[in-house]
């Protein structure tokens, strides 16, 4: 599904990613752990296509195509989804309107029929219910005045509605209490499927108790320094990142 080869990325002239290799197959959930400043968020932004992240070397192929050649919205329509660490507040655009515009834009880009208001409403309600996203939230401006937990639930709702093939969850656990974390993790787990790959980026092992990964990578100073099974997360919890060429964070 996703093949990253020798990926080097600079931001403002500074090299942040220094040769990443990563191969993720359909149905797999990979966790990327690492201390602050190791390049975790940079990796997620490069995959989503944010401006200001310059790929100086290497390649990223998604479903056999050159991902780096595609614009931000083309990547989304092709099935890449980034759940933001800090979802943006968009005053004046209701969550409902945003979801409909996004879903129909993707359907249009893929040559599928756009959903009319009635069908869309039915679909969004069906997806919103298990995530405790209320009609009231859907009517409000996107993420405006949402609590931390509401923002993350809204991100998972977007993911559930857009049904990406590759979901990148950037520090989805940040700012969540344990109950909110459980709701969000349940939402994510419900989306696990043999056709879908996920990258779960996190600083702490806590999230991985709820979203159990198939593979864990440790990212440090722009490189993947260790790869292992889910037990690697527990090791890190005990030893910290000190042994991986970075300060204990």
């Amino acid at each position: 599904m996703l093949e990253i080869k020798n990926l080097h990325v600079t931001v403002d002239g500074k090299e942040i990613l220094k040769g990443i290799d990563l191969d993720i197959g359909a149905g797999e959930v990979h966790a990327i752990m690492g201390p602050n400043g190791s390049g975790k968020s940079t990796l997620s932004y490069v995959l989503a296509g944010r401006d200001g992240y310059e790929v100086t070397k290497g390649s990223v192929r998604f479903k056999g195509k050159d991902l780096l050649d595609m614009s931000v919205d083309e990547r989304a329509a092709a099935g890449v989804f980034l759940a933001f660490q800090y979802p943006l507040e968009i005053p004046g655009v209701t969550t409902m309107n945003f979801l409909k515009t996004a879903l129909n834009a993707q359907r249009k880009a893929r040559g599928e029929e756009e959903l009319d208001a009635v069908r869309f409403l039915k679909l969004v309600r069906e997806k919103a219910k298990p995530l405790n996203v209320t009609d009231d939230m859907l009517k409000r401006a996107l993420n405006v005045g949402y609590s931390g937990g509401e923002k993350k639930r809204a991100e998972v709702l977007q993911m559930s509605l857009l049904e990406p093939s590759l979901a990148v969850l950037d520090e989805t656990d940040s700012g969540l209490d344990i109950d909110a974390l459980k709701t969000v993790a349940e939402g994510v787990n419900a989306l696990r499927s043999p056709e879908r790959a996920m990258i779960v980026i996190t600083h702490y092992q806590r999230l991985l108790d709820y979203i159990v990964p198939d593979v864990v990578h440790v990212l440090s100073n722009g490189r993947i320094v260790k790869t292992g099974g889910k037990e690697l997360a527990h090791e890190l919890e005990k030893s910290g990142y000190a042994g991986y060429g970075a300060d204990a964070a």
């Binding site: 296509g49 919205d73 979802p87 996004a102 880009a109």
Partner: peptide, 17 residues
Amino acid sequence: FYLRSRGIPEAEARRLL
């Protein structure tokens, strides 16, 4: 960027905002 990352083309994202 946020809107585009959900598949909304740039012109449409600007217009929406």
